[in-house]
Amino acid sequence: MEHLPLDRELGAAAIGAGSAPAIEISDLRKDYNGFLAVDGLNLTVPQSCFFGFLGPNGAGKTTTIRMLTGLAIPTSGTIRILGLPIPEQAFEIRRRIGIVPDDTLLFDHLTGFEYLQFVGRLYGLARAVAQERSQELLDLFELGSEPRKLVGEYSKGMRKRLAMSAALIHRPQLFLMDEPFEGVDAVGARLMKDILLQQVHSGATVFLTSHVLEVVERLCDRLAIINRGKIVLQGTLPELRAQAEEGAGSLEDIFVRVIGAERANSETLSWLQTP
């Protein structure tokens, strides 16, 4: 992998700073007016791991990520990121993580270059460094050909690529990503995957959610499946296969067994079947 020509000093100093797990969640709960979005979650994600966090819609994935990023406050339970407790050390944690949210949080009236530079400076990079990295990232993600274009004029895929660039600019130790490949074309997605794998190989941890199980299966070395706010399965893929019933070959098989088996088997609507 030759791309990502970034200054690695900051990241190298940060990566491997401790031997604590990248994420440690203990008995985490989130109650929205009586609705338990997350219900007693226990999870450990080791460092230098590509971790897939799966679950059906409404299972509690995004709520969990929002609590990990500090955007949502847990009702109870503890979270430690890179050995640091949240919310006590939230500020220090923020410096070390990169986030790609499900709904990209971008300023529509800045250009891509201005946005990346802005984010870089918020993360403490010197202005010149932020500028240099912004241009390199824009070129890397093929967003540099239209420098006058405002973020508000970007397509969904371009916005995701820009959000990914923003997550990379300060070379974080931990990436928290909610559906990072959604809306991104095949070439862009391939590039993003390669960069993430490269980051994991150099010591970073990736925690991602995705509904594209083939991608998760290929990328992740550890997985957890959440349903109705609770972890129903976790481990490596062979471990998951062993935990699931016999005959579960692919991750999709395992997922459908664990999640789909609990669902009512409804027949297709008759009016949809008529030719």
């Binding site: 220090e92 529509d108 984010v119 918020l122």
Partner: peptide, 16 residues
């Protein structure tokens, strides 16, 4: 008001 959803960045970036 103008930041809208992007205001989230103020809570995820290491800025008081």
């Amino acid at each position: 008001g103008f930041d809208r959803k992007a205001a989230q960045i103020y809570f995820v970036a290491p800025v008081p």
